[in-house]
Amino acid sequence: MQNATKLTTVATLAEGESFLFTVRERDGSEEEALVVHTADCVAAWLNFCQHETDQRLDRGTGAAIRDGEIICPKHGSMFDGCSGYCDNGKAADSTLVEVDVAVDDGTVYLTDDDYTFLHEGGIDDDDDMPSSSSHLSF
């Protein structure tokens, strides 16, 4: 696989879990991204809710995923893990920003030419996180 960077393995990333990593965009800015593993797919998205772009879906401890949907920890909007589409809550009718990945022989690779892998984990792994107003508990 040409121009691909190994991220993780499907065996390591259990169904219903996420893998957080940091990338550099073409303009030089850094972004967080997450790979999610659902019953139907392995997909990757930039790590922010479409309702509030400063709201991280994975705050460094794994994204909340239920029945194949990624749940925004602040407002409870639920994004389909395979399509990124949200049909409920404050982010309804929006779609997460996709990051291209491929699975080859059980290994998950970053294949998106718009992003360069920097490191595993978030940009700033600190405890300065927005509060939650979600009615859901995890």
Rank of each mutant, 00 (worst) to 15 (best):
T9F: 03
T9V: 02
T9Q: 00
V10P: 00
V10C: 03
V10M: 02
V10E: 00
V10H: 01
A11K: 09
T12I: 02
T12E: 06
T12Q: 07
L13V: 01
L13Y: 01
E15M: 07
G16V: 09
E17G: 11
F19L: 03
F19K: 01
L20M: 07
F21G: 02
F21Y: 11
F21S: 05
T22Y: 11
V23Q: 07
R24V: 09
E25A: 15
D27N: 08
D27C: 07
E30P: 01
E30S: 15
E31V: 15
E32H: 08
A33H: 04
L34S: 07
L34P: 02
V35K: 00
V35W: 00
V35H: 02
V35D: 00
V36H: 05
H37M: 02
H37K: 02
A39M: 06
A39W: 04
D40L: 04
D40H: 05
C41K: 06
V42A: 03
A43E: 11
A43M: 13
A43Q: 13
A43D: 08
A43C: 09
W45P: 00
W45K: 09
L46W: 09
N47H: 09
N47W: 09
N47K: 10
N47F: 10
N47M: 10
F48E: 08
C49H: 05
H51D: 07
E52L: 14
E52W: 13
E52V: 13
T53L: 11
T53H: 12
T53C: 10
T53Y: 13
D54E: 11
D54I: 12
D54V: 13
Q55I: 15
R56A: 09
L57C: 03
L57M: 05
D58K: 05
D58M: 07
D58H: 05
D58W: 03
R59H: 00
R59W: 01
R59S: 01
G60V: 01
G60L: 00
G60D: 03
G60W: 01
G60A: 03
T61G: 13
T61V: 14
T61H: 10
G62Y: 00
G62P: 03
A63E: 04
A63C: 08
A63Y: 01
A63L: 03
A63Q: 04
A63I: 07
A63V: 11
A64L: 15
I65Q: 09
R66Q: 08
R66K: 11
D67W: 04
D67L: 09
I70G: 11
I70T: 14
I71Y: 08
C72G: 09
C72K: 07
C72T: 12
P73M: 04
P73S: 07
K74H: 14
K74R: 14
K74C: 14
H75Q: 15
H75I: 12
G76N: 05
G76L: 07
G76A: 11
G76I: 10
S77L: 07
M78F: 13
M78Y: 13
M78C: 15
M78L: 14
M78I: 15
F79D: 12
F79A: 12
F79P: 15
F79C: 12
D80H: 07
D80M: 08
G81K: 06
G81A: 04
G81V: 01
C82Q: 02
C82N: 03
C82V: 08
S83A: 06
Y85A: 13
Y85S: 11
Y85L: 09
Y85W: 06
Y85Q: 11
C86E: 10
D87P: 04
D87E: 11
N88P: 06
N88W: 04
